[in-house]
Design a protein around this nucleic acid. Structure first.
Lengths: 180, 180
DNA sequence: CCCTTTATGCGTACCACATACGCAAAACTC
DNA sequence: GAGTTTTGCGTATGTGGTACGCATAAAGGG
């Protein structure tokens, strides 16, 4: 059996608690002390499980998005539109998400979303790297749009988003059309 | 004449100094003390000219982008591509730009860029709100892409950006085509 | 010229936070 | 139970934002 004192909490617990605080009071409210209090532990206890606050932010960032939903039946266009809206909705549940400083080493959740996006393009004549380009571009756009989700500034976001998405899908269609 | 002691510095000086620090050492290095030192003033002297650090960040954010360049001759496509690349290049000169927390009250510089973008669509049969949608969407995409400008992670950004831009312009073309 | 008025310069002080360090506490092995 | 190992966490340090209040300088009036 494993030696030593049993851990009372683990990194996942800490991440969960931090996300709860961020959801309820904003990213600025997430301090090591605040998260520890949420868990009924002392501040410094957290450092046994996460190396630094930056690491905690990276963990939060990856697990904020729950698992991507399955795509509906239909052509690539409907599927990709569904996917993009799911991304936006997922971020909408955690409005602090776009404010987390860039953490380039993406985690497993981000990859799962990316894969789902690729799946929307199954059956199209695009090359693999073109599919990746399409999905990355769209994801970038959606993330950018999500920055306007700050409470109080969502006016007209839905309409703008639909229009931008429409333009983008038209572009993909034209690109596919031009190569067959 | 105006009464009272003469101000040794003004908000513009502070903003300039803060941008210089951010350019040279990153946004994290921008502290009130650091900026004051840059100006040869005491920390608290800054507060006579900016209300808070958040206000300073907003000022930095607006004046980071210098004035937009004039667009070249050509069709809307070339002009919009030129504009998008200018936006990306402008941000590239201040890689901390996308990291500034959202400051919704946009400033005069942002508006100038937006106007230039609209100008790229002069002569197209788009309605005013469609033009605005096109420019906002593209700006959002470029800003999103610019988040990957963090030193060390620009690999393949140029190619990805060109591809995304290509898709988007195709989409605008299709949208215009579908309405004439 | 001195005195009052008015605006700026900035030292001091306080609070929130991240985190290094080291010892105390707990759980397992023999 | 003694030794070993791993976690819990109190203490302390450094950094950063900023409220407060007095010192300081500039201009106007007598």
């Amino acid at each position: 059996m494993k030696r030593g004192r049993k851990p009372a909490i683990d990194a996942a617990d800490i991440t969960r608690a931090a996300i709860a605080v961020a959801d309820a009071e904003g990213l600025a409210a997430v301090s090591m002390a605040r998260v520890a209090q949420e868990l009924g532990n002392a501040t410094m206890a957290l450092y046994r499980h996460v190396k630094s606050k930056d690491e905690l932010l990276a963990l939060m960032s990856d697990s904020a998005m729950e698992d991507p939903p399955d795509l509906p039946e239909g052509d690539w266009r409907e599927r990709l539109r569904f996917w993009a809206k799911a991304v936006l909705a997922g971020i909408g549940r955690h409005p602090w998400f776009p404010q987390v400083p860039i953490s380039p080493p993406v985690g497993p959740h981000s990859l799962a979303w990316f894969d789902k996006g690729l799946g929307a393009l199954d059956g199209t004549p695009l090359e693999p790297d073109e599919k990746a380009g399409v999905v990355l571009t769209l994801m970038t756009y959606v993330h950018g749009e999500a920055r306007s989700l700050t409470p109080g500034y969502e006016d007209g976001l839905a309409a703008r988003f639909d229009f931008g998405l429409h333009l983008f899908l038209e572009g993909v269609a034209a690109h596919i059309g031009g190569r067959t």
